[in-house]
Amino acid sequence: MSALATPGGRALSAAVVSAVPLLVFLALLAYFGARAPGFLDPATLILILKQAIPTAVLGVGLSFVVIGGGDDVVAGGIDLSVPSIAVLSAAIIADQLAFHGTGTLAAVLLGFMAAVAAGLCNAVLVTRIGMTPLLATLASSTAFIGFSKLVTANRRIDLSDPLIVTLRDGTVAGLPLGLLAATALIVIAIAAVHRSRWGLRLQAVGGNRDAAVIAGLDARRFVAQSFLIAGVFGGLASLFVLARGSGSTPGVAETLLMETVLATFLGAAFSPRRVVTVWGAALGAILVSALSIGFGSVGVDVFWTGCVKGGLILVVVAAAAVARRSRT
């Protein structure tokens, strides 16, 4: 079979092009390491990881939808509402804990139920009503943000609940508890998508819907499930959002959205198959966090980071588009 032609040269140039985002990143990290003493210290690395947690969990949720819907943003799978689901759930939990004297468990449960309902709402809009995921989740996210403002009356709520404090400050064997919990979540998600029957089928639905249908899969069910799971991860992320900010803060959804989309699509650049993966999204989140902290440590104005991140989105996506073109 070795005599058969394989698309050699083209694949190579595509690989080079799609490595561009990674190279840009490595260059930036090397720059930080050289310019900012202490950037590569364990303490800074832990800080980077801790800062990355909410984005990583959200990115993992988003990656379920992208994997199940395909990575064409307009026609395929995208869920722009995951960060606003997290913000809504965080608002409910914070409000219940701070003003209604609800027990921790009950408050978290309420927040979760809202997140699952939000995911279900997206699933219905996309698979039953037939809206494109982009339009559906863009619209639903404004509703979720509206609800979270309603719950918190649009003000910041500070929390000193033991669960949140433990999630922020607690350690197990010298490692931050929040980090361990998030790692466990991500490992479970990786197992579900990349190690299970269900996950393989979800990937097939997103990778080539016709192929999945020929294999006898109910594509719509998988898409609906992916939106539900994204909602669940939005709910889980809310705890980490609360822990990072020690409470509910209005207006974080937009920043979270940008970082989540960036982390998830950046992750595709690291995957050997050049597709969005769960672990890629988590890794992407860590890199984005490293960038933010790195820029801070070399004294770059914090306002520049949005510029750099937006530019990275363009570079990542343009590289993917060029790579795809040279592959076909």
Binding site: A191, R195, S196, R197, G199, L200, R201, Q203, A204, G207, N208, D210, A211, A212, I214, A215, G216, L217, R273, R274, V275
Partner: peptide, 24 residues
């Protein structure tokens, strides 16, 4: 009608995967 980023084994077994207690 194949999924381009699947391996040969994944493609062939899609829909009738072999799985154990530890997953695929």
């Amino acid at each position: 009608n194949l999924v381009p980023h699947f391996t040969v084994a994944e493609t062939i077994f899609l829909g009738q995967e072999l799985a154990g207690p530890l997953g695929l």
